[in-house]
């Protein structure tokens, strides 16, 4: 098992799938000759050529629609949208075409397309480059939404997403491409549904996804060492459909839940997980569930303000201590 970087894991998944199936292509802005803004397609242009590693014009809705149309006829496009903020422009095609075509054609036509895009607040990129949009994608019927928290998931989720017959949106994070982690040397496919126990615990469940899994794990260490609270961390790598059973199981064990999201609270992952807890295991709760979310503002440029706008592991610790009356 080798330790590789997040971007290398994505690149490896692309490479293996493109070697196996000549109909797998990748497309996006600067992904070919330039090698990709986050290196996720580095070297693939030289290996597979311009017909399969496509540098697109800056036309997000156009090239996403083109990928979807190609998928109608059996091509398997992996579309990189350079920043999730630009994916707003492609929502028409992702939502109206890819997510609905199987249903509205009575199962005749499928759009097996993968759209990958990094969101999140990075380093002072300002309001229009710091969006966290997973909440928008997960609310649309017909679309699968996954979000890797480590290189192993980044590799395995992309492998499965490419082969799955449904459209899949992969929510990545701008700050995570250089994160290192172990990825098995042999090929594997990560499930596109479900959730993962990242840390077992008895006292409280911390729900995270993507970057917030790491905040939850850091908080859990502090809670264990300094406060004697044994937190369980659940990695919600699949945001649509959310793992109702996994959520129920953990909360039924710990009887307490904190949901950690980098995005603003309204209409988000936290509110959705809370609703599921209400529906599945309300009477198991010893305390009202709590969200640790971003402030509901556009992300400011100023570094101090930017940091204040999004949550961090200390916020998670505080929320848990408050829940325990400490």
């Amino acid at each position: 098992m080798a330790e590789i970087m997040f971007w290398e894991a994505i690149r490896r998944a692309h490479d293996e799938e493109m070697t196996r199936d000549p109909l797998v292509i990748c497309m996006g802005e600067d992904i070919g000759v330039a090698g990709g803004t986050y290196k996720a397609t580095q070297g693939l242009y030289d290996k597979y050529g311009a017909e399969r590693v496509i540098d697109t014009p800056i036309s997000e809705n156009g090239y996403t629609g083109l990928g979807i149309g190609a998928a109608f006829l059996g091509v398997r496009p992996v579309i990189e949208i350079m920043s999730v903020n630009f994916a707003w422009l492609a929502m028409d095609q992702i939502f109206n075409s890819a997510a609905k075509v199987r249903y509205m054609s009575g199962g005749q036509l499928t759009a097996p397309v993968v759209v990958r895009s990094p969101g999140g607040t990075a380093h002072q990129l300002g309001a229009q480059h710091s969006a966290r949009m997973e909440k928008v994608f997960m609310g649309v019927a017909g679309l699968r939404v996954v979000t890797p928290s480590n290189p192993r998931q980044a590799y395995g989720l992309l492998k499965s997403a490419i082969r799955c017959d449904d459209p899949v949106f992969i929510n990545e994070h701008e700050l995570m491409y250089n994160m290192k982690g172990e990825v098995p040397d042999e090929e594997f496919f990560h499930p596109l549904e479900g959730s993962e126990v990242s840390r077992e615990g008895r006292d409280v469940t911390l729900f995270g996804y993507n970057i917030s899994v790491h905040w939850a794990l850091q908080a859990a260490e502090v809670l264990a060492k300094q406060h004697g609270i044994d937190a369980e961390v659940i990695d919600l790598y699949c945001l649509a459909p959310l793992d109702r059973e996994g959520i129920r199981k953990s909360v039924s064990k710990t009887h307490r839940a904190v949901i950690i999201e980098e995005a603003e609270a309204p209409v988000g992952v936290g509110s959705e997980v809370m609703a599921i807890i209400n529906e599945e295991c309300f009477f198991e709760l010893d305390a009202p569930p709590v969200r640790v979310s971003a402030e509901n503002v556009p992300i400011p440029y100023n570094h101090g303000m930017e940091k204040a706008a999004i949550p961090n592991p200390q916020d998670v610790v505080k929320a848990v201590l408050k829940m325990f009356g400490k």
């Binding site: 090239y63 629609g65 095609q93 109206n96």
Partner: peptide, 23 residues
């Protein structure tokens, strides 16, 4: 297919053409 978003099929048609060309 018929699509209800005005202009939606333009890129889909180009994508089908891309697939035809590849195949």
């Amino acid at each position: 297919g018929g699509y209800a978003l005005v202009g939606g099929p333009f890129p889909l048609a180009a994508g089908m053409a891309k697939a035809i060309k590849m195949k």
